[in-house]
């Protein structure tokens, strides 16, 4: 019983944070048709911003969240402008997915190397956003984890509202569904693409603040979240927001169950094993469809 509760709690926490990081990748894939390999860097940068605000400047968590959001928004926009936008006009002449996979990966290499130069290879402890914990049926749930889950869920909800209700949110979905038609409506794609990537990066940056507090800030702190987000988006089917959400919690569950039952070291191999199986039987993920990866 207590194992089940532990698994469920952990599923909620892990699934929410995966969802937050992965939903940005889905947003980018749906709109720009690229797999953004720099998303992990944004998690890493979010962690360092949190460390800078909370430890160096000794300021409070809200400032850290806002600063991380702003910093990764700007860097995400910048990444799009240098690694994707210049290729946009040649979209049809090249293997756009592969080329942007490589260029965003190149940016990620540079970001983590720069972080290594600036902050050094050692892990930096980030204090929890909130301290204390609550007990649920005998299982400890730290406020930090709870805050992480709640913030992630709130942000994902806010993203959903933004996409459903606002002018720019509708424009993002319109571009994802029919680029030509959206342009004839007057949607400035030259501005919309970088902003979309900025927004997605900012979500990962927020995730980075929590992950940094959960673990630590380090130049490689984004690698694992990137892999996990990749697994989630592909498991859920690229470009499908609802698929991403299901997949985030499914992956969170698999991982939690693996941690609780067979131990920490086995979690990633189990995940990869599951992915191998899923891709063998469902080549486009749970909800994906190659021809209509739409938001």
């Amino acid at each position: 019983m207590s194992q089940i509760v532990a698994i469920l709690i952990s599923t909620l926490v892990l699934g929410s944070i995966y969802g937050l990081v992965a939903i940005g990748m889905t947003l980018i894939y749906g709109t720009l048709r690229i797999l953004d390999m720099s998303q992990g860097s944004m998690v890493m940068i979010g962690g360092f911003v949190a460390w800078g605000v909370l430890v160096v400047a000794n300021s409070d968590p809200v400032v850290a969240l806002v600063a991380a959001f702003a910093a990764t928004f700007v860097l995400g926009t910048f990444t799009q402008l240098i690694s994707v936008q210049p290729l946009m006009s040649r979209r049809s002449d090249l293997d756009f997915e592969m080329v942007t996979f490589i260029t965003t990966f190149a940016v990620a290499i540079v970001f983590s190397n720069l972080a290594l130069q600036i902050f050094g290879p050692f892990q930096k402890d980030v204090p929890p956003v909130i301290s204390g914990s609550v007990s649920i049926i005998g299982q400890n749930l730290s406020y930090q984890s709870l805050a992480m889950a709640v913030t992630s869920i709130v942000l994902m909800g806010a993203l959903g509202l933004f996409l459903a209700r606002t002018r720019w949110g509708l424009a993002i979905r319109a571009v994802a569904q029919d680029l030509d038609a959206a342009r004839t409506m007057g949607v400035p794609v030259g501005r919309l693409y970088p902003l979309t990537m900025g927004l997605a990066s900012a979500l990962a940056g927020i995730g980075g603040v929590f992950l940094g507090a959960q673990f630590f800030a380090s130049p490689t702190a984004g690698d694992l979240p990137l892999l996990e987000a990749l697994i989630v988006v592909i498991f859920g089917g690229l470009g499908s927001l609802s698929g991403t959400l299901y997949a985030a919690y499914a992956i969170g569950f698999i991982q939690s169950a693996a941690i609780v039952t067979i131990g920490e070291t086995w979690t990633l191999p189990v995940l990869y094993g599951v992915i191998l199986l899923v891709l063998i039987f469902r080549p486009y993920g749970l909800r994906g469809n190659p021809s209509e990866a739409r938001l």
Binding site: L170, A174, D178, A181, A182, R183, T184
Partner: peptide, 30 residues
């Protein structure tokens, strides 16, 4: 095209160019 659209040219494309996964109202708002 977005600049030309901004100058008041409205184009009803062949085959409608609707955003299939958006509602009628969302399409209109676009």
């Amino acid at each position: 095209p977005e600049a030309i659209a901004g100058m008041g040219l409205v184009h009803v494309m062949q085959g409608d160019g609707l955003f299939s996964d958006m509602t009628v109202e969302e399409n209109l708002l676009m």
